[in-house]
Amino acid sequence: MRAGGIRGPERSVGWLFVTPAIVIITLFLVVPIGMALWVSFTAWNGQGSPFRSGVPMAGLDNYTGLLTVDSLARQDFMTSIRNNGYYVLIVVPAQTVLALFLALVVNQKLLRAKSFFRSAFYFPSVTSSVAISVVFLFLFTSTGAVNQLLALFGVAGPQWFADPRGVLHLLLGTVGLVDPAAPPAMLTGHSLLGLSWWEWLAGPSVAMCAIIALAVWTTSGTFMLMFLAALQNLPVQLDEAGLIDGAGPWQRLRFVTLPQLRPTLLLIVTLGLIGTWQIFDQVYVMSQGDPAKTTLTPAYLSYRTAFKDFDYGSGAAISFLLFVVIIAMTLLQRRLMRSGSEE
């Protein structure tokens, strides 16, 4: 009797409670994705509604223009993939290792003022990305704080945001393998997806390195907290058993602590992969893709293509290709987490 009395209102109150959420999520998340998918098959220029009958259809042209047809659009897109790829390749390992290192140091039993240090490392990640980018822009001017600091050690710092030279090119030049001023024809002669092998091998530009420094600096704190939480949940007995067996601190880290941190490590690496493919704010504020397109990223390119060049179809197509990359990372993460929790 009582249960039946509750069920009726429970159903209607349930729907009443979720309706605002459903309306807003549908209207501003689900519908937009569908609309953008449609626009990515058109050549809409931003005038009027993209759903009028007069809007020129592009079929798959926006996608083929980015992937298979040799064009400026493909060259820019592949350049942005290259730039972001190197960015991911450096930022993800660097922030993960730094976060783990800081967590291990902060977690040492005998140290005092732990919470101060924990907060100090975490604080940068709660601040506005735009505001922090302004600070880093100032730090990395050609006569700025970073270069003055380098000068103290006798190093002449580069022109950071005005320097498009690829770090890998510079490295190959320093080692003497190739001359960056006259790269071998073998590398410049062959191309892949619109960029020559030599261009693919540029590495992140000097300008991109400043953005990489910013990224590692802002995100390490968050990941440090995750490592710290995981470390504090580890059973002490195992570590003590290692101690009794005569294992040194390095051995205990290598054979006792790290294996237990594996699920956290996987989570942090995949969260890092998801986050680093989305870099946008920093590029918008600090470099707008310059110098020489070496800080162009897919997210920024899609914005610029749509809102500056008024090629919404191509911009939306870039968004979807980026979407595919990030969703692949997310699915990977969810799968890894599931297998991690089953262990």
Binding site: R11, V18, L29, I33, S302, Y303, A306, I327
Partner: peptide, 30 residues
């Protein structure tokens, strides 16, 4: 609360959490 469609709503919301913000720039504008 028990109501029909609850699991679908939950699953949709969970899926929406995975949608990366920056790819929504153009869609939201549209």
């Amino acid at each position: 609360l028990r109501f029909r469609g609850r699991d679908t709503v939950s699953a949709t919301i969970l899926a929406m959490m995975a949608v990366p913000g920056v790819v929504l720039l153009i869609p939201k504008f549209l």
